[in-house]
Design a protein around this nucleic acid. Structure first.
Lengths: 343, 343
DNA sequence: ATGAAAGCGCTAACAA
DNA sequence: TTGTTAGCGCTTTCAT
């Protein structure tokens, strides 16, 4: 009788043992009954289950995780959760894994290496069975670090090298956006190009530039500005471009929120978005329709649920297939024709 | 030698024991060294730490949780994470607790009792040390269920009865919105009133109605429609009102996203939001400025970080004080004067 | 079909 | 200051 610092079981939580004692059986039997293992028809099973329920028994995942070395949880790493696109993917992941008896633990990493490692380590310390990585960086440092962690992981939204990933065809998406602006007759086009480390945004930018080049429209570097995922960063980037090029007639932003942020800067320069300057965003988050924003629809929920299922497959030992989904242009009022051609 | 199903330690994860063996000390010593307990000056400490680091040792939270009965994690229950207001609060919580050596585990409950219980149970099975509840319902069922779970918890954003809560003064916020519309000269005002079970939205609605009544402006029930937190629900609610009252000149929506959703319905009826009809939202999420939405600013980050600190205090055994923060009106282009008075 | 025994990795008591 | 001992609650052999 040492180790007495948990002195009394006050109300204390209900353990397997307590249920077993009251049921007059061995804890092992209760464990089996509760998990539906072995003896289904025995009337004991329902008796034990009822008792457990009545006592308010709740399994202790810390204990079962320790014993089985499986936590029944997966980790999800995102750059920011205030990016609705990420939140949408996360909710799809969460729903999918919960249906399958898992839990999804998220962490926002701020899209930076130290945050990524720190947060991934925290998740790993909780012994997550796998990782869904939505904040991959093209420079391989993060990914090769992940490679060494001994846990199955899968990229979502962004791909890195040829590692398993569930993404959409961002290059195509960029082409759809650029093609649309070219069709409308725009020639002085600006790009809010996202982050250089994100395959998603760099591909969208590249796709857009490629199609514009095919149409004979060139975009000098001075009309391209990087940005983050939030409106404020879009505003600032747009502002920088307008300083140099007050005469642009269209903007493609690789994210809906940056697109909306850009509209602030345009208005500050006396330009009416959707009348004087066309704007195209990316993702088609739930707010885009309300803002009349032309955008490229990304199948975010599908991406999340496929990624979740794929990771769970990997956890179960199967090998993963990468998946590439297809985006789609959604035309709304924000993409007007250039002023000269307006009527 | 029973229990042999973990057959070999392949690469296998590094345990305290391994570090101890290689350091030539007892596991207890390593544990103490790593946690900075007891023997700071001993040169052993740095030696052990270096070794642990070199071996890539990572603590196993499942084991320490089991042993100490503390998980160093708190649970956060939100209605939806795609509501940027909730995501903003969550990120503030997350940051605050991580700085203090904790982890925040979120769950979206869908704002319904079964989801709330199910997700809370999952969190409790992970032995979270406390719960931050951002999806409280006024009818006390959820809250009284929480009372019985034997874990400290704190309401955020919504209050229930006189339970400890960190909220903003929603009644005042509603007054600010209503007062603003009255000042502009509006008389036919519609309300998107949120959910009856949320103290936040009901108080905002009540505050607005109160100030309008003081100004002699009455709002018949047929101009008030409940709604959820997403744009689509705002659109649908607005549509229902417009069917009955195509002549309204202003709308107060208790959430920015519903406000933006409402603008879709207005346009579908040939009304220009911000020109023909004034719109006021609530929260001032990051997107509101870009959409030129007049709104009531809720100190979301502050709410999150105060709530997190307060809960951690409760976990440490201190008693919690409820906190009420103050909202603030932010006037933007969406709140125009009524057409008759336009010039 | 059920029980006995052992141990997952860690840390709190106690002893030295 | 360090080591010994025991056990958190669970599940997996193995034995009955």
């Amino acid at each position: 009788m040492h180790d007495r610092e948990p002195p009394a079981p006050p109300p204390g939580r209900v353990t397997l043992r307590m249920v077993a004692d009251l049921a007059g059986v061995h804890p092992t039997t209760v464990s089996r009954a509760l998990r539906g293992e072995a003896n289904p028809r025995s009337e004991n099973v329902t008796r034990i289950r009822d008792l457990a329920e009545k006592l308010g028994y709740r399994p202790d995942f810390a204990a079962s995780t320790l014993r089985t070395r499986r936590s029944n949880a997966i980790g999800v790493l995102v750059p920011y959760l205030t990016d609705v696109a990420m939140a949408t993917i996360y909710e799809a992941i969460d729903q999918t894994v919960v249906e399958r008896g898992y839990q999804a633990l998220v962490a926002s990493t701020g899209d930076q290496l130290d945050g990524q490692k720190r947060r991934a380590e925290l998740l790993l310390s909780r012994r997550v069975d796998g990782l869904l990585v939505a904040d991959g960086h093209l420079d391989g440092r993060y990914a090769s670090w992940l490679d060494q962690q001994g846990v199955p992981y899968l990229m979502v939204m962004r791909k890195v090298g040829d590692r398993a990933a569930v993404v959409a065809d961002d290059h195509l998406g960029g082409r759809l956006a650029g093609g649309h602006l070219a069709d409308l007759g725009h020639e002085r086009i600006a790009l809010l190009s996202g982050r250089a480390w994100s395959s998603a945004t760099t591909q969208r930018t590249a796709g857009c530039l490629a199609v514009l080049a095919e149409r004979g429209i060139s975009v000098p570097e001075s009309r391209i500005e990087p940005c983050s995922l939030d409106p404020e960063s879009g505003r600032a980037a747009m502002e920088r471009i307008l300083q140099r090029h007050p005469d642009i007639t269209a903007v493609f932003a690789v994210n809906d929120f940056t697109a909306l942020g850009a509209s602030i800067a345009l208005r500050e320069h006396g330009l009416r978005p959707g009348d004087d300057v066309a704007i195209v965003g990316y993702n088609d988050v739930h707010i885009a329709a309300a803002c009349e924003l032309t955008t490229v629809r990304n199948p975010l929920k599908l991406m999340g649920s496929i990624a979740a299922r794929t990771l769970l497959d990997m956890v179960a030992g199967r090998t993963a297939e990468s998946v590439t989904l297809t985006p789609e242009l959604v035309v709304r009022a924000s993409s007007c024709r250039p002023p000269a051609l307006s009527h």
